[in-house]
């Protein structure tokens, strides 16, 4: 169990992106995970793509990843 953490809404979580210029500070990244179901003899896996904006607020700072996966990402 991690330290007490608060749940944020999408607007709260992604607010810092508004102050960053996406072209100069951010890079769109993807990470594909899967959803697998056991079907008789074998597993059937369907990809589930997750999208992230990887942003560096200032030169030399460690990048922060903001997940931007939405309802349309996997449609």
């Amino acid at each position: 169990m991690a330290p007490p953490t608060t749940i944020r809404s999408r607007d709260q979580a992604l607010a810092p992106l508004d102050t960053l210029d996406a072209k100069t500070h951010c890079q769109l990244k993807e990470l594909v995970q899967w959803e697998c179901q056991f079907e008789g003899a074998d597993y059937a896996c369907f990809p589930f793509k997750r999208l992230f904006e990887r942003c560096i607020a200032a030169p030399g700072k460690t990048p922060t990843n903001y997940e931007v996966t939405n309802t349309d990402t996997n449609n």
Partner: peptide, 14 residues
């Protein structure tokens, strides 16, 4: 799927 300071979705899966 998330490093310290990152903002990630708790569970976007279907």
């Amino acid at each position: 799927t998330g490093m310290p300071g990152d903002l990630v979705l708790v569970d976007p899966s279907t």
